[in-house]
Write a protein that binds this DNA or RNA. Structure first.
Lengths: 214, 214
DNA sequence: ACCCATTGTGTACGATGTTCACATTTGGAG
DNA sequence: CTCCAAATGTGAACATCGTACACAATGGGT
């Protein structure tokens, strides 16, 4: 059953109308299942019901398409992190709230890595310079990229007096390193296939370490 | 100048004699320059002066070849970490020595990631289960894998009284997460292209965090 | 109403992974 | 020593992929 997968068999308009988006969407689905290497130009065009070359009207390269998909995956990550923060129970304790929001950043990050490993890998697949990932293409519903979400959470820790101001500079890289590293170990490192509850525990332990060591 | 690269143009014996090794070696060179995706079966056989299919007598798949190359890269990493430890100045203070050996594990890891990003990426490219990476194919000259080197360094910390025994279990994953994450950020994350001295500083900061938070 | 920039098509080329049938060599068993 | 079977390398072939080039259809601005 290799050939019949013509999901969007045909269209009657010569113009597609929204091909660029359709290609990114198809690429996202491919990435979701097989990671960055699975986002294949011809497969995406097939899914969009279009000749392979049509893609070149919207992307100079397969790499350009992959980059767009990567940005979209990054936006998914941002939304997952935001969602994790919105599930937080309300508190009157400002310090506790800041701390909870900080931890939610890491927890959401790890949850996304676990639930959507293909998209996670794609998001971080040679993503240009992630610092200039201020690109709104990588942002969530609040308009912030994952990196910026982490930054504001750290600022919150400082405001709440939980993080000395002189430790603030560069703290995002310490926190990010630890959480991202754990994500890698969970996805295709030695911790792959760990029981979900153990995964959650491991995540909390890493975040504990960050809070102590930051 | 695409076609002339026939480095090992011919051989006069029908049998190659050591093809499996030659392919892994060629694969290592490809990986060094272009990461895992650059280890191309046909390129490796070309380099070995052999028909493409000959590879299938030694590897079931391109993936099997890639896996072997990955293991070899992991061994390189182990040797770099060992080398970092041997450059340590001798000390009579046992605790200081244990601490230095622990930090050298992380420093060597990061140095390898920086100096050989292609090999580093290849070493961690879907490396089967790294836990059962007790495989001697991934070991350095001391016969220990990177994971095992980290473990013994942590044991050293416990023996020296620098790490409470109840914090020892699972500590390798905390330390590994942080260092590995930083390596990723340095190689193709936001910290790519950072000035080498800054890179070193960032590494020391992360290791500081680990020591405080472990 | 007519251009022409935009967008999609068809055909084609080189490279890659992989398979199948065949050739050459080597190491033992007789 | 001979000879045969297992091991190892070769050749031709196929499907798929990224990509380039020439061409066709469309539709908005003058």
């Amino acid at each position: 059953m290799t050939a019949v997968g013509n999901n969007k068999p045909k269209r009657e308009t010569y113009r597609h109308g929204d091909l660029r988006n359709a290609l990114v969407e198809a690429g996202l689905e491919l990435a979701r299942q097989g990671g960055p290497t699975a986002v294949v130009l011809r497969a995406a065009t097939r899914q969009a019901g279009v000749a392979p070359n049509a893609a070149y009207r919207h992307f100079t390269d397969r790499n350009a398409l992959l980059h767009a998909v990567s940005q979209a995956a990054m936006a998914h990550l941002a939304r997952t992190m935001e969602a994790e923060q919105t599930t937080l129970p309300p508190t009157t304790d400002a310090a506790a709230a800041a701390r909870a929001r900080f931890r939610a950043v890491g927890t959401g990050y790890l949850r996304f890595a676990q639930e959507e490993p293909g998209l996670f890998r794609t998001a971080f697949h040679v993503p240009g310079d992630m610092t200039h990932a201020a690109a709104d293409t990588a942002a969530g519903t609040t308009g912030k990229t994952p990196f910026e979400l982490l930054g504001t959470a750290l600022d919150g820790l400082v405001e709440a007096g939980l993080l000395p101001e002189d430790r603030r500079p560069g703290a995002e890289f310490l926190a990010w390193s630890a959480v991202h590293g754990l994500a890698c170990l969970l996805i295709d490192g030695p911790l792959r296939g760990l029981h979900p509850t153990r995964v959650h525990d491991a995540g909390q332990h890493v975040i504990d370490m960050i809070e102590r060591g930051i």
